Amino acid sequence: MARTGRPKAELVLTDDERETLNRWARRRTSSQALALRCRIVLECATGASNRDVAALLGVEEHTVSRWRARFVRDRLEGLTDEPRPGGPRKITDAQVEEVVVKTLETTPKDATHWSTRSMAKEVGLSQSAITRIWRTFGLKPHLVDTFKLSKDPQYIEKVRDVVGLYLAPPEHALVLCVDEKTQIQALDRSAPVLPMMPGMPERRTHDYVRGGVTTLFAALNTATGEVIGQIHRRHRAVEFKKFLVRIDKEVPAGLDVHLICDNASTHKTPAIQRWLTAHPRFHVHFTPTSSSWLNQVERWFALLTDKQIRRGVHRNVQSLEKDIRNWIKTWNEDPKPFVWTKTADEILERLAGYLKRIPDSGH
């Protein structure tokens, strides 16, 4: 006997409904949830079964069944989230769409981005209404993030090389992320810091007195999280060579050493090349230009800055260097490696998505 399941609701679209669903599904400013629901309904309208639609769109079968039934019952209004308890809505879907579209696709005449006040004046709603709409759709016109695209002609090869070391490190070898944190300033406040008290945060003067600078050379073991650190007052190939000697002494002789470095000139001088040639167990892997985020030691530098340097008070360089050494010692007593999860393909796919959003990117 043939297996019978729950009968699917018959779904037939009008021309206007089909046009609206296609517009919502294609508009890049639609929420991902709404766009998916529109695609589900459009596929169901072709006569496909819930199982086939679920397989095509990569969702669960019960998800398709729910939105099919919601659309048959409530039509286009059924694709929005269920209303919450409370008074009747005073803002229509058309007004919400107008706010979202204007926020994403236009700017005011006298500013680079919308504020709640300017948008409220533009569309005739209250500032609190604009705030609620922006919060619902995750819109933050006042914020801006930064990025930089690498122009390295070997970008793809280098990304695959470095990420491969993170996800599948070679046997009988250590993978070390190496870099220098330069120009670390010893800063003393112009007046004593006032300690935190109940109901009052720590207070300090906004101005400071410079006591000199230093440079930290660090190598992060990607497997254990341990750090080899060395401090020098200058940042040259001479100091980098001394740091390589330090690494050579601390890593057991039977292990190869894979160094992940950036493209700083101090890493590529003839003296460094001769040293690496004389020590064949060292293998250098360069990150792409403008891609410091690919080097895990940069994340460790951020922790050092947040936990020790930024709010530290140091009258001289010696005091600063002592605190840095103590912090490294404390870190190595309970090291925590960073877990890399993104594959090279996922990184490159994300980059491709950025390029598609940039007009005239040439890609």
Rank of each mutant, 00 (worst) to 15 (best):
Q127P: 09
R70Q: 02
T92Y: 10
V96E: 01
V238F: 09
C177S: 09
L194G: 03
W114P: 07
T205M: 14
V284P: 03
A111T: 00
K148D: 13
K158Q: 03
A48L: 15
T305E: 13
G58T: 14
I228K: 06
A45N: 13
G225D: 01
D334M: 10
Q95Y: 04
R27C: 13
K102M: 08
G87P: 02
V41F: 01
R89K: 14
S31T: 07
S126V: 05
F282C: 07
A2F: 10
R350P: 00
T29N: 13
A223K: 07
D345M: 07
N22G: 10
E61R: 15
H62T: 15
E105D: 04
D74E: 14
P252W: 01
K148F: 12
R236D: 08
T46S: 13
L34A: 04
L187M: 02
F71L: 10
R3V: 15
K242C: 11
L56V: 10
G211C: 09
V175Y: 06
E98V: 03
I260L: 08
A219K: 00
G47L: 02
H283L: 13
P85E: 03
D161F: 11
D334W: 06
E321Y: 08
L174F: 03
G86P: 05
R274L: 02
G138F: 00
T106Y: 06
C44Y: 03
D52P: 01
V101P: 00
H267L: 13
V53A: 14
D360H: 14
Q32C: 06
T214C: 04
A264Y: 15
V284C: 04
H232A: 05
L348A: 04
T289M: 00
P108I: 00
L220F: 15
L255G: 00
V163M: 12
Y354E: 07
M197G: 14
I231S: 03
T131D: 12
V53G: 14
R246M: 09
T107E: 10
H314D: 02
E226W: 02
T112Y: 11
T277N: 07
G229T: 05
W67P: 10
R203L: 15
E202Q: 09
T20Q: 15
I309Y: 03
T224E: 01
H363W: 15
L57F: 08
D334T: 13
R70I: 03
P7R: 05
P288H: 05
S150P: 11
D323F: 08
R234A: 12
V99I: 05
Q318I: 11
L79T: 04
E202H: 05
T103F: 09
L187S: 01
R3A: 14
I40H: 06
E226D: 05
D334G: 11
I272T: 00
V159G: 02
P280M: 11
P359W: 01
H172F: 12
V59I: 15
F243I: 04
G124Q: 04
T222F: 01
L11A: 03
S49R: 10
F240V: 02
P359K: 06
L303T: 12
R23A: 14
R189S: 14
W293P: 06
L255F: 11
P195R: 06
S265P: 05
W24K: 07
V159I: 06
P195K: 00
T107L: 09
L303W: 10
V284D: 02
S30F: 00
